[in-house]
């Protein structure tokens, strides 16, 4: 159901959506049953002249079972939800797939800084690309993120990924995502934890790019003296082609 509201943008989004749907069906079933029974009672037992209410204690064995039995069924539903939850949670928050790329995310009042690994694909080297409020990632690539905060709590929330993680000052929190190529384009990143005056304006944009677009972006943002020969060559070639086509 969620995919109708927000597109699925990560490899684990479908799992979260499925769990959401399963809960919706189970809860929906019980809700309609109980709410319907409730309305039925209200209608059927409305006061009528000459009809006296019944004396029912709810303490006999049979009456107690009328309450108890549905609860074993509800407990069964709870167990189904729990088991599914454990799998989803493990996949999203506990499991850490081997990353192809890493990105460092730093939250502060009231902006996001992103440190992309740059053309060498290694974080913390000279060719890292730092941006403010713009995260550029390559679709179909397993990312590991390092989330930090410099002042207060923030929360890194990407609705299309179904991902959210608080950033805590003094700690580095790791997580992962892998964007689908169905969501190439520009998307919202929101801060999801109250962080003071401009919390309501602390957004960033997520650029999900094809490998070609991403390479171009890296090339455009890498100073010439840091470009390795091969990449420099490809970019010159590409720009020549562009010039030809243009």
């Amino acid at each position: 159901m969620l995919e109708k509201l927000v597109p699925r943008g990560s490899t684990y989004a479908a799992d979260i959506d499925l769990l959401f749907d399963v809960i919706t069906y189970l809860v929906g079933f019980w809700f309609i049953l109980v709410f319907g029974f409730f309305l039925y009672c209200l209608f059927r037992f409305r006061r009528k002249a000459g009809v006296k209410a019944q004396y029912i204690t709810g303490e006999t064995h049979k009456q107690k079972m009328a309450i108890e039995v549905p609860h074993y069924l509800i407990l069964g539903c709870d167990v189904v939800i729990l088991i599914m939850t454990f799998f989803v949670w493990h996949k999203v928050k506990i499991d850490m797939p081997t990353p192809d790329e890493e990105v460092r995310i730093v939250a502060q009042q009231w902006a996001w800084s992103f440190y992309h690994a740059g053309q060498d694909g290694i974080l913390g080297t000279e060719d890292d690309i730092a941006t403010v409020n713009e995260l550029h990632i390559k679709a179909g690539t397993q990312y590991k993120f390092h989330l930090e905060a410099t002042d207060v709590m923030h929360s890194f929330s990407v609705p299309i990924f179904r991902l959210k993680q608080d950033a805590i000052p003094g700690r580095i929190i790791y997580g992962h995502f892998n964007a689908l190529d169905t969501v190439i384009g520009e998307w919202d990143i929101q801060c999801a934890e109250m962080c003071g005056y401009m919390h309501g304006g602390m957004g960033a944009r997520l650029f999900v790019e094809t490998p070609e677009q991403h390479a171009e972006w890296i090339a455009a943002n890498t100073p010439d003296h840091l470009k390795t020969a091969s990449i420099a060559a490809t970019t010159t070639q590409e720009s020549k082609e562009d010039a030809k086509n243009g």
Binding site: I16, I23, F86, V88, K93
Partner: peptide, 11 residues
């Protein structure tokens, strides 16, 4: 129930 399930709560 949706929110109590940590898997959905992520979202």
């Amino acid at each position: 129930i949706w929110l109590g399930s940590s898997g959905v709560d992520v979202y």
